[in-house]
Amino acid sequence: MSENMGNKVSLELYRTQLLARYFEQRASDLFLENLVKGTNHLALGQEAVAAGFGVAMNKSDYTYCTYRGHTHTLVRGAPVAPMLGELMGRECGILGGKGGSMHLTSVEHGAMGSYAIIGAQLCIALGSAWSAQYLGTDQVTTVFFGDGTTNIGTFHEALNMAAVWKLPVVFVCENNLYMEYTPIGKVTAVEHPGADRASAYGLDSIIVDGNDADAVYHAAQDAYARARAGDGPSLIECKTYRHQGHSRADPGKYRPKEEVEAWFARDPISMYRLRMMENGFTDEDLTEMETEIQNTIDEATEVAKLSPVPSLDIIDKDVWADGGSAWRN
């Protein structure tokens, strides 16, 4: 296979999607084994969005995501064992067991947090875009959110302020067609929940096939170039589909069978694999990569399983900057 730039990007996009897919599958398995507690909002089927942006951005850039944020955190380079360990509530967890599935964060990788209150992260993302603008760095902030978020006030507050301040921020609407259990079209005044709102903030209306990692990657590149040139924010709507329900509590039975089948036929990873084969990669090349990433997940799983539960000592740690939780003298 040739080592040109396009192939390097393709390999990275495929690798990143696989990592996301295998991680989510493992999270699902561990939940069924009762090793992951609470809930899980899996991004199975939506991996191309996190991968496309993750590969297109710089290491020093900032990202914010939702409670469906395992993959967005992972693609920034957050290590797998602490990520799984966090889902399992273990001492090795990336948040020490304090945050759980919905709050995965890795500040050292620019993954500034997973936010579980719809829309909050769009406003918080303004802040790191503002600091980059103020400090004169070339860092761009990317913030991911679902279609349901376009109906909450914070979406509109954030879009307006980003546009007025010309902030280097990219708003990524992952439109998986359902606001939790309800079809987004039933509760939204416009057909395209993200793109149709863009003009209200003076932004271009952009819709991307969110199951096509190349399309996502190119849209991301355009938005990052615009942001780094000082031309302000972008809003990109990526159409995609969850392979499962909203969370572990939801079997997703409200979705028509034909719709589910049509989207499974457009699985981002299967489609990408075919494209890579068309572009000269061999089955052997790809299988080797798949095995390697599966091994990474397997090894990390063992590390996480062997990690003890967190010490009770941490309950009253890190409320304050002094490391403690004292509220009185």
Partner: peptide, 22 residues
């Protein structure tokens, strides 16, 4: 700022997280 209290506090928070003292 505009009348956007969530954006005001959100922007302050994100800026505080990344090096400013808002």
């Amino acid at each position: 700022t505009p009348i956007s209290e969530n954006a005001i506090l959100g922007a302050a928070m994100g800026a505080a997280m990344t090096g400013l003292k808002p």
